[in-house]
Nucleic acid binder design. Structure first.
Lengths: 242, 242
DNA sequence: CTACAGCTCCTAGCATGCTACGAACAGTCC
DNA sequence: GGACTGTTCGTAGCATGCTAGGAGCTGTAG
C-alpha cells in the first residue's frame, strides 16, 4: 500500500515553506475528492505523491490534526475525520455567537462607503460564480464575504476562528454535493444581510445573518445525519447545542 | 549563544509523545519566568535543555506558533509573543460571546445536582489555593471553573476555543504579577456566578459572568498598556472591540 | 472449518546530517 | 570618522536513517 503514490500534483519548486504548500495540497485534495474521509493514509504516501520528504508533510499533518481535520492513529497512519452531526451543530453555535455581534458592528461601521463597495464587489463575484455553476469558486467567495464582515467588526481573533471553523465544515459540503439549495438560493440569503449592513440597520442585519446561518447549519447537520444513517432528528441535535 | 543550554529540567523518560511533553515544558517555562517574551530562543537551545532531539521540539513550537504564543523568525530563531492590548481585548470579546451563552445554558442545565456539586467543589479548591496565596494553583482551578461551565453548556468546540484563549492570556498575568486584585477579589466575582447557576437563574448568571469577564479583561488590557508604555486608554481599546 | 500463534510489513515518531540564508561583526576604503 | 564589503556564525527548514510496535496475513494445530 505504501507505493500507491496517491496521485497528487508534485509540488512545483516554489518559494515559501513546503509545509504550508503541503497543507494547501491536502486541503485541495480533500476538496476535490482525491482524499476521502475514513480512508487510511500515511505520511510516506503523501510525501511521495508530493515529491518532497516526510518531514514537512508530517509537520503539515500535525497542524491539521491540531485543527481537528485529521487524526493520527498511533503507528498506523492517519484518517480524515468527517465531522459528526453534533460537532457541526457546535461549530454553527460558535459561528452564531461570533458572527451575529460582528454583523451588528459591521452595520454601524465608521466607514460605510468602503465597506459597501467591498460587500457589493464580493456579492458580484459570487453571482458570477453562481451563474456558471462554479461551486468551488462560489464557496471561495462565500468564505470571502463572511470574512469581510468579520474584518469590518475589527476582531482578528474572531475572524481567524471563524475561518478555521468554516474550512472544517467546507469539506463536508464539497464531498456530499447536496443540491437541496442551489447557489442562487444561498445568494438570496446573503442579499438581505448585505442590504441591511449597507443601510446601517444592525437589527435587520443580525436577523438576516441568523437566518442564513441557521439554514446552512441545519442543512449540514441533516447531511451529516444522512451519511451516517442516524435516526436522530436535526431539531433534536440543533436545539440541544444552539 | 547556542550553548547556553537554557536550564530546563530534562524530560524524564516518560511514555507518550515527547512533542507534547515539550509543549508542556515550554508553557511551564513561560509561566514561571524562565522564558520571557521578547528574548530570542532557538530550537537547538531548547532541545539541548530538554535533553531530546530537535524534531519533537520543533513540532511543539510549530503548534505553539499556530496558537499564536510564539513566532518563528526566518533563520533566526523564535520569540515569545507578548499579547498586544488590542489582542487581549479581542480575546475577551470572543470569550464574552462564547461564555455568556454558555453560562445561561449551565443555569438551565438538566442535571443541576451534579453540576452544583462540581461547581462548589471547584470553588472550594480555589479558596484553598487563595488562602495560602498559591497563585499558580489558583489560576489552574480558575481555568477549571470556566471549563466546567463550558462543559455544562455541552459545546466541546467552544470549550476548546476558550481554553486556548485563556492559556494565551495566562502568561501575561503570570509574568507581570499584578496585585491590583487579590485572589480573594477574584473569588468574590465568581461567587454570584456560581450561585446564580445553582439557583437556575440565567439572567443573573449571565450578568455576573459579564461583570467578571469585563473586570478581568480591562485589567489585563491595562497591564498590557503599561508594559508597552502606550498612551492609549483602556476604554478606547476595549469599547472599540467589545 | 475454526482458533491461534508467529511472522512480515508498514507505520509514527525520534534522531541527526545537510544546506541556504539572514544577522552581526570585522576589516577596508573613502 | 563613516560608509561599505567580505566573512563568520547560528539558524530554520528539509532530507533521511533508525526503532519500537501494532495490524493483518499465513500457516498450523485442533
Amino acid at each position: 500500500m505504501a507505493d500507491e503514490a496517491l496521485e497528487l500534483e508534485p509540488l512545483t519548486p516554489f518559494p515559501g515553506r513546503r509545509m504550508e504548500q503541503a497543507i494547501a495540497a491536502v486541503r485541495a485534495a480533500i476538496d476535490d475528492g482525491r482524499m476521502k474521509p475514513g480512508v487510511k493514509y500515511s505520511v510516506y504516501q503523501l510525501a511521495e505523491g508530493l515529491g518532497i520528504s516526510r518531514t514537512p508533510v508530517r509537520d503539515a499533518l500535525l497542524r491539521l490534526e491540531e485543527v481537528g481535520l485529521i487524526k493520527f492513529e498511533a503507528r498506523q497512519g492517519f484518517r480524515i475525520l468527517l465531522p459528526q452531526p453534533k460537532e457541526i451543530a457546535e461549530i454553527f453555535a460558535v459561528r452564531l455567537a461570533l458572527e451575529l455581534p460582528a454583523v451588528r458592528k459591521a452595520a454601524t461601521a465608521p466607514d460605510p462607503a468602503a465597506l459597501s463597495d467591498a460587500l457589493l464587489h464580493q456579492q458580484r463575484l459570487m453571482r458570477d460564480a453562481a451563474a456558471i455553476g462554479n461551486e468551488h469558486e462560489f464557496a471561495h467567495h462565500d468564505l470571502g464575504l463572511h470574512d469581510l464582515i468579520l474584518d469590518a467588526a475589527d476582531n482578528s481573533r474572531a475572524r481567524a476562528i471563524v475561518k478555521t471553523l468554516r474550512e472544517t465544515t467546507r469539506l463536508l459540503g464539497a464531498n456530499t454535493a447536496d443540491k437541496t439549495r442551489t447557489l442562487t438560493d444561498i445568494d438570496d440569503e446573503h442579499t438581505p444581510v448585505i442590504d441591511a449592513i449597507i443601510a446601517g440597520q444592525p437589527d435587520e442585519a443580525e436577523a438576516a445573518m441568523r437566518k442564513h446561518l441557521e439554514n446552512t447549519g441545519r442543512l449540514l447537520v441533516a447531511q451529516a445525519l444522512r451519511t451516517e444513517a442516524s435516526d436522530r432528528s436535526v431539531d433534536e441535535i440543533w436545539s440541544a447545542v444552539v
